[in-house]
Design a protein around this nucleic acid. Sequence first.
RNA 1: GUCCCCAUCGUCUAGUCUGGUCCAGGACACCGGCCUUUCACGCCGGCAACACCGGUUCAAAUCCGGUUGGGGACGCCA
Length: 494
Amino acid sequence: MEEVRVRFPPSPTGYLHIGGARTALFNWLYAKKHNGKLILRIEDTDEERSTQASIDGILEGLQWLGIDWDEGPYFQTEFAADHITAANKLLASGHAYKCFCTKELLEQKREAAVAAKQEFGYDGTCRHLTAAEVQEKESQGIPSVIRFKVPVRHGSLGYDDQVLGCIERAYSDIEDFVIVRSNGKPLYLLCNVVDDIRDRITHVLRGQDHMSNTTRQVLLYEALQAKLPVFAHMPLTLDLQKRKISKRSHGEVVAVQFYRDNGFIPWALCNFLCLLGWNPGTEQEFFSREELVETFSLSRISRVNSVFNFKPGDPKFITDPKLIAINEHYLRTMDLDELGTLVRKELEEENLWNPAYEGARRDWYLATLNMIRDRFHTLKDFTTGGRAYFSDEYAIDPKPLAKNVLKFPELATWLPQLAERFATLAEFSVEETERVSREMADELAIKPGVLINGMRTVLTGQLAGPSMFDILMTLSREKVVARLKRIDHLFAAA
RNA sequence: GUCCCCAUCGUCUAGUCUGGUCCAGGACACCGGCCUUUCACGCCGGCAACACCGGUUCAAAUCCGGUUGGGGACGCCA
């Protein structure tokens, strides 16, 4: 059987956004599923807008997501000769012609047509120029573009889309399109096809915004006498206003980098993205890589555009709530060693990493992550809300400080007294610490919660957290006693 | 103006091809309860949708037609 070869061809004119990432992911999944190859091709033929920063951003984004490619990255501009050769071939075979209409004139005509609410396609002015007329214009030095000559046929052109079914369009509705600029540089429609032919691409999986390109490119394949790949157009991702998402209008939240910078787990993003416009036909929503590769199929891609549920300025959700929920799910269920590696990066960035966490304190490190991960949302929480587990320098959140500590001024003496009892305990265990804590609350005739919650806030800086006595064990007797004793400043400041 | 695609809870979606098992299932979010030293997790429960109008049929979310709505494309961008 023919090898499956798919490609992801971003144009380096901006950062990798979630729509592009999803396209890459679907292609990657399809390649993996069929033991095929994914080709990465940077389509940099727009010299004015392509940037190196964008290329770097796209590559980094894909790598971070874990989407690897088998060939490339190829750069489209490096194959300019192929594109020119193909254009000349089309010219020679009568499938294309030189057009001398100026950009300005065309724009004028178009504007007039729009104003008059008329059709505004190319009118075919240069389509029927004789060889002599062409020669004369060229001798006068008039610049020209090369246009594809759409065949005059009755009926319509169709192709079988793997997602949408049979797509048809009347030949008469397709206008002659430019394939080479007047400066000799070939355009996307042509380059893309020439490269796909050269790269032996068997399946073209891209967004529905390319549908009209596909119709024209089918013509190109035919004229170039190349075998047509299989096409599949996936639905677009829109915002709540049903607008196409773009970094310009939506900001960082649609950029893949945003998720890396905000502590998201790469695979959680992939898992979320795959559910946007695709489903397995079962009620399964979480997939390992292997499961997703196994389950993925083009036939289950939706035909309906999906909405990225992001509300700008929402204080509770920095992005689509479902994406956050998926991230939380992986945070608390993923393999501890893997989590350890991800959290290590976060700790290192904040100078909280201790090499012993990979050695003597490995068990402590993983057990601590396991204890605190249940109520975290992102990897960032390990260095913010979880900071007190890794450093003695941590801030006390003002809200719990007021509610759990300052509200009971007596804690200024109670907590150091409790520390003293901990210090002299024969056995520093969950049971014993709880016993003496409750015992002391009894003696003082107060609710145990006063001591427990006060302790929590002093020891972790937080309003809430894991079971208090587990925290005690994790922190160690020394730290607990020390932290509970030096609390004068908390009251002094207030 | 022309062409193409689409239409189920607030959002992601199952069900549409192969009409009846769907007074429409799951997830997220939201609300309530249980658990509990806190907050989460977890568990249990609740709210919430077939765009509209016609037609076909014993029977329509499902088939057909129309309307409306949304999206995409119409570049010497990709």
